[in-house]
Design a protein around this nucleic acid. Structure first.
Length: 754
DNA sequence: CCCCTGGGG
């Protein structure tokens, strides 16, 4: 080669996937940016100098060699190793995707991470964000087709893409980051990609995780049963954290936590504190108590105890208040007084999603709220449960980000060793999988039971999902995706909502159902501040429609749009502006999908008819979520499952109608149904005849009431809309049975209680 | 007479 070519072409002599460390280092030091051909900026050189100090940088040669020689690599890198920013760049230099029209993708479990890492890496590579380096998350595609060759994205986004391109042909290398978090999307992607690398020898895969899970992934991605995928290991760069345990178990962890925080504040050196609690109410209560006691301490002993600033942190807090965690600690009261201290009281949002610098002390009571799914009663609920060892370690690590720290665990060392699980159960074992199953079937996975999961979900959970999809006519009796099901999978919605939205044109109210669907897909829109409950309830009552909560949601959205010019409208009506903006975004996105399928957005003009049709459309998706009033005390019984439920206090119905349809079942102090509308029982017979075949119903008031409706209707024709197909169940049972190692599956009795 | 741990499309 001539010196001339090398001086103008930083990547001269690079052979894809056979690139060596010294070549890359030279290219990075080159006067020209190899990807833009522009001279490097001064900022680039400054950032490069700091990059070169990262632990992972010292192992570039080793990494590139392993990347050249292997199709799949498992990599572990602890906090501070620089793996998320550097490894994708190393890969880009070796893979040279830009020369082949390909993309290197790096997935993240969270949107903020995908955005902020992409920004950082664009700076490091001296390119404009959204050009050579970009990101892709829901509602925001910050990439340029043909130009972007390094893309950070959420795991859910890559899964969506796989539905339309199961071979993921655009990608030359896929990097799954934070795989140890085991999100639903990452788990499904691991299964798909394990299969895909066998079919696409040109596709490389890197799975990045924390140390504890590495061997599991190495085994999973071993090409044969007796081999493991190679491991690439990078040390982290954190400070030591000293861990303390209690001598005896603490009967009341909130009380113990408050005591420990005050002890630290009184006796330990300066440095901020992070306390983990389980939920909003607990956090606000603890903050109140700590503030009172800390103020007392400071007043009693102003020369040795400084001021304590208490900051709550949980996801439903407005972003502006969340920002407070980055405020500096309060100043001393007097110029010679003891320094102030910051205390952040947080849910496990601070365990992975948000990093607070300056934390030196962590107080860990050992609990968090975790989602659990009970397939027998088809209910997801949140339970306060002990955390795993991995979580406890993650929490402790939060004390050592800026200097050596201390972690106070409010449980005994013996309990830590003996009682805590190694890992938090992956989400796939704790969730309702109806959405996931629809996605998998759309991806062409026919045999769901024998799919190669990292951890296989309970057969009964799969059965529940298949059963629901079959009732919704998304799948036929042979387990094939129907045309309707294929369309449903394209909507970023739960199957019930997708079905309701698609079929709503038949009732000439798709415009309204589109709004309702969007409103049901965002967090609670109703604000209820502690000190203004009465005002909030009154505002809500004014917006409520007597026929049901679904129509109230529609009403709120329409009024919100009518008052768009009035900035204060949401606040004055105790409505969450944040949720409304989100609903608007979701609605637009759904409308685009509808347009793609040429589903018209229409409204019947007769208002009375419109309101009735809307509730009929609800039945198309939610006929399995119906309850019948039994007895006089306002208690309801869900159909078929025979669960006794109450109307949730947030429900806006004026009366207690005999029949109601509900959006969700929540198990809190007792079972409640939430977001409820009145319905006429004849709609059930008309719209979901197969589900409402009475032979399969348990005896009781509900069945008798339905029988009366059927008798009255006898001889009248049924409408031809939104029918659920007849379900044989045989095929499902066979699948489940084989998954159960040939043992027959016990027939589940539907009954009360959890 | 109540809850929304956290994340994703």
């Amino acid at each position: 080669m001539s010196m001339d070519a090398a001086s103008k072409e930083p990547l001269y002599g690079f052979l894809p996937r056979r690139v060596k460390g010294n070549q890359v280092r030279k290219a990075m030091e080159h006067e020209l940016n190899p990807f833009t051909k522009q001279p490097h900026t001064a900022q680039y050189r400054k950032i490069l100098a700091t990059r070169q100090k990262l632990p992972v940088f010292a192992q570039m040669d080793e990494f590139l060699k392993m990347f050249s020689e292997n199709q799949v690599i498992v990599m572990v890198g602890e906090t501070g190793s620089g793996k998320t920013t550097q490894i994708p760049q190393f890969v880009a230099y070796s893979d040279l995707p830009h020369t082949r029209g390909k993309i290197v993708a790096c997935t993240q479990p969270r949107r903020v991470a995908a955005m902020s890492v992409a920004k950082r890496v664009a700076d490091e590579m001296d390119v404009q964000l959204g050009r050579q380096v970009g990101y892709s998350i829901r509602f925001e595609d910050m990439t340029e087709p043909g130009t972007t060759f390094l893309k950070y994205m959420t795991d859910g986004m890559l899964l969506r893409e796989a539905m339309n391109d199961p071979r993921l042909e655009r990608y030359s290398t896929i990097i799954l980051d934070e795989a140890h978090e085991r999100t639903l999307a990452t788990d499904i992607l691991m299964g798909l990609l394990k299969n895909l690398v066998k079919q696409r020898s040109d596709l490389k895969l890197i799975v990045m995780s924390a140390t504890l899970d590495a061997l599991k992934f190495q085994k999973y991605f071993g090409l044969r049963s007796d081999t493991t995928a190679p491991l690439f290991k990078v040390p982290g760069r954190t400070h030591p954290v000293e861990v303390f345990y209690t001598q005896e178990p603490e009967p009341d962890y909130v009380e113990a936590a408050i005591r420990t925080v005050l002890m630290i504040h009184r006796a330990e050196d300066p440095g901020d504190i992070l306390l983990f609690l389980t939920g909003e109410e607990e956090i606000e209560e603890a903050c109140r108590k700590i503030k009172i006691e800390a103020d007392d301490l400071t007043n009693q002993d102003p020369d040795s105890v400084g001021p304590l600033q208490c900051i709550p942190l949980y996801s439903s807090l407005p972003p502006q208040q969340q920002q407070r965690i980055f405020d500096p600690p309060p100043p001393p009261r007097t110029s010679t007084g003891p320094p102030g201290r910051k205390l952040v009281v947080s849910t496990n949002i601070a365990e992975t999603s948000l990093t607070i610098d300056g934390i030196v002390y962590v107080v860990d009571p050992g609990f968090s709220k975790q989602k659990v799914y009970n397939p027998r009663i088809r209910v997801e609920s949140l339970l306060v449960s002990p955390i795993s060892k991995a979580s406890a370690q993650q929490r402790a690590g939060r004390a050592g980000r800026t200097r050596p720290g201390k972690c106070f665990r409010l449980y005994t060392e013996k309990d830590f060793m003996k009682e805590l699980e190694e890992q938090t159960h992956p989400e796939i074992l704790r969730s309702n999988l109806s959405n996931t199953v629809l996605e998998l079937v759309k991806l062409g996975i026919k045999d769901l039971v024998h799919f190669d999961y990292v951890d296989a979900p309970a057969p009964e959970t799969l059965m529940r999902a298949l059963e629901l999809l079959n009732y919704l006519a998304a799948m036929d009796d042979d387990g094939n995706l129907t045309a309707l099901g294929s369309m449903m999978a394209e909507f970023p919605l739960d199957p019930q909502l997708a079905k309701m939205l698609i079929t709503s044109t038949e009732f000439k109210c798709s415009n309204e159902i589109l709004t309702i669907t969007a409103m049901l897909s965002v967090p609670n829109i109703w604000l209820r501040p502690n000190n203004q409950r009465r005002e909030a309830d009154a505002a809500k009552a004014k917006l409520s429609v007597p026929d049901g909560d679904h129509l109230t949601l529609l009403n709120v959205y329409n009024l919100y749009k009518l008052n768009e010019h009035n900035k204060g409208w949401a606040w004055q009506n105790f409505i969450s502006q944040r949720s409304m903006i989100q609903a608007e975004n979701v609605r637009n996105q759904l409308q685009r999908v509808m347009e793609r399928f040429e589903i018209d957005s229409i409204s019947v003009t007769d208002e009375k008819k419109l309101y009735q049709n809307i509730r009929k459309a609800l039945v198309c998706g939610f006929f399995m979520q119906v309850a019948h009033k039994e007895g006089e005390k306002g208690s309801y019984m869900t159909v078929k499952d025979h669960q006794v439920v109450g109307l949730h206090p947030s429900c806006g119905l004026e009366t207690q109608p005999e029949w109601v349809i509900f959006n969700e079942f929540v198990l809190t102090t007792r079972p409640f149904i939430r977001t409820v509308s009145e319905l006429r029982p004849e709609w059930l017979i008309e719209i979901a005849a197969n589900y409402y075949e009475l032979e399969s119903f348990p005896d009781g008031e509900t069945k008798r009431a339905l029988q009366r409706v059927i008798n009255k209707r006898a001889g009248r024709p049924v409408a031809e809309i939104g029918y659920a197909t007849k379900r044989s169940g045989k095929q499902l049972a066979a699948e489940i049975e084989s998954a159960n190692n040939g043992r027959p599956v016990k027939k589940q009795k539907t009954g009360r209680g959890g």
